[in-house]
Amino acid sequence: MTQSVLIVDDEFGLADITAELLTEAGYDVALAINGKLGLASLATRRADIVITDLMMPVMDGPELIRRIRADPKLAQIRTILMTALPEAVPTGDAAMHDAVLVKPFSFVELLATIHRLLPPA
């Protein structure tokens, strides 16, 4: 079964390009522009992994991940938090993500991180 990815980012450009590259790499990719819309997408469409930006309007990345973890139907989804500001990544108990990607990152780094969390089928 094709593995599916949800990319959540408010920023123009990066999300679209990442989505294209992941589609070419064989993933089934969906996009959302904030955490709230990301959750809405998960309600109707399965995802094996969520790659989310940290700072976003309406609902930010850490809050989206917290809600995923709190929902038994979603809790098993692997999560990657991406940010240009590693200092702002939640630590300790607040850190519910599986991995962090510091922007700017290469596609190779992104794929390696995805493969680590979700071995290719």
Partner: peptide
């Protein structure tokens, strides 16, 4: 950043 200054793209 991410606390008192929040960057968002609209």
């Amino acid at each position: 950043v991410a606390s008192a200054i929040y960057y968002i793209s609209a």
